[in-house]
Design a binder for these strands. Structure first.
Lengths: 299, 299
DNA sequence: CCAAAAGTGTTGGCGGTACACCCATGA
DNA sequence: TCATGGGTGTACCGCCAACACTTTTGG
């Protein structure tokens, strides 16, 4: 493939693209399905321990991928993305890449990392990829209808991916696992209301480990960020559970950057950490629908 | 300045640059000096000798800036940086930008964020800036010698900065404050060996709050990542303190991704969080001196 | 030259909070 | 079977205090 000789490629500025890792909760996958999809991809991080998760019907992360229509990696699955236009912000570009892939509305959008090593192009032009990750609301099977070149895959059953997209997805999952510990991202994967059991299952699914339900319940209720809607919801055929809504108290005045105990210093806490991944745009004067998805809007 | 018409600029790919926020410990600044600097953005250079440093005791963060030699923002201070070449990795580019600014050796290098909003160019060409942040070893005054177009500024006495570089620096400081809670970045600001008092002062300086010395000592020693060198060092003229070296046990085999209690899930811990900011290059086969600075190298 | 003072290094204890683990009750 | 609440033991941390070691200072 002739993309010019070495010196030309060295002097030319790299291409800039924006890609998105889109994550949503989906049904648990049975063991054999998982085995089929796993193929030879050999998933890395995922803890061996609990295949019981699928048995219990615990939800699972799914993500949409698109089939490449050109070389290199023609026919391989890849992250949704597109070129960066000079008149678009990075968030807008990521949002557009997301919209063109799934009809679902993102409830969270955050920059993940920028990949730009020269050897990641694998025969293509040198490419800098600014990668975002997004959370979309749980879609009951309906949202998982696959388009022509779009297909949803379970997180532990990914196909062979183009470029370094496998690494990127693993990194996005790490970020999600990390961020669920101190932010409200878990609620972004559910609908506007949910039961504590649902929230608990999401935490367990993403963390990949069991979490004591009693302590989880106590902690969530004690956080003051959950509001009882007063209604009840029945998941199975047992006793209905109380339905909650995520409604952070904020209070905005009191917790600006006051005395943060040493506890906070060693054990990260909500407010302190939320800004860790995205800059605070102090000078932003207008918040539109897009910026409401971006974590900096919470500060 | 004719950069072409709107449609040309819209269709053209944006420029890609790599900038670095370089941080180092330096002497503390007295109150009036900092007030003076904050006032009209007039730097001190190295006027403030170490008398105030030893007086107030607690060290402070300093960072080098370069004076712009072209429009826009000609004459303003800005972050060190340069254009991204297609044959350089992002880390290499950041490292080169760092090297061209200060003779100090970085002990830490991590991608911070990528800024690419169209309105940040302020009359220049649209520019995507991939920003890294670096920690260099404490330099006793000697390292703070200013070059022609390079000058060190204390973190709380920054001049007026070009573009959105002020925001970027604030974000880097947030990242540092956040990361000091669960990683070893504090040791990167000190030399290879240090007393617990020194380490404690760094934590207090960055966190901006007092930390109980007894608990700090207990926690640090209990972490198992500090190794007693056996030697003693005297800071003032009192009893000498034990000198430690950062030497993580790692053990690599045992702590891969085992049972992480719910404690870890809500209160972030070392190993779990360390990967939160930078991807793990599972396929990297060769680690050179540069990659030893990158957090992923610790995984 | 010696003793007390001064200043920091180092260790221990007490109390409160948060979490792991376990149990009880009721729908 | 699951929702909801409670209970106990342990580990960590904020806070306070005591002791150990080295130098300075006043006789």
């Amino acid at each position: 493939m002739g993309f010019g000789n070495v010196s030309e490629r060295r002097s030319a500025p790299p291409q800039v693209g924006v890609s998105v890792v889109i994550l949503a909760l989906g049904p648990a996958q049975s063991a054999d399905q998982s085995a089929r999809n796993l193929g030879q991809g050999n998933p890395v991080g995922n803890v061996s321990a609990d295949d019981t998760a699928s048995a219990t019907g615990r939800p699972q992360l799914w993500l949409p991928l698109v089939k490449r229509v050109r070389q290199p990696f023609l026919g391989s699955w890849a992250l949704p993305g597109g070129h960066l236009r000079s008149d678009r912000s990075l968030e807008q570009s990521a949002f557009e890449a997301l919209e063109s892939t799934t009809a679902l509305h993102p409830r969270y959008l955050e920059q993940l990392y920028t990949f730009g090593d020269p050897d990641r192009s694998h025969g293509g032009l040198p490419m800098v990829s600014i990668v975002y990750w997004a959370l979309v609301e749980q879609s009951e099977a309906a949202g998982f209808e696959d388009g022509d070149n779009v297909r949803w895959f379970p997180e532990n059953g990914l196909p062979t991916l183009a470029f370094d997209h496998r690494t990127i997805i693993e990194y996005a999952l790490e970020r999600l696992r990390s961020k669920i510990e101190y932010s409200d991202v878990a609620t972004r994967l559910l609908g506007p209301t949910f039961t504590l059991r649902q929230l608990h299952d999401v935490y367990e699914a993403i963390a990949g480990q069991t979490i004591d339900l009693a302590n989880f319940r106590r902690k969530m209720l004690a956080s003051g960020d959950l509001e009882d809607t007063g209604t009840k919801r029945r998941e199975g055929r047992q006793r209905p559970a109380a339905v909650y809504r995520y409604a952070p108290k904020d209070s905005a005045v009191e917790n600006a950057s006051h005395h943060v105990g040493v506890t906070e210093l060693f054990a990260a806490r909500h407010d302190h950490k939320r800004i860790a991944e995205s800059p605070t745009h102090h000078d932003a004067e207008h918040r539109d629908a897009l910026s409401a998805l971006i974590p900096s809007a919470h500060e």
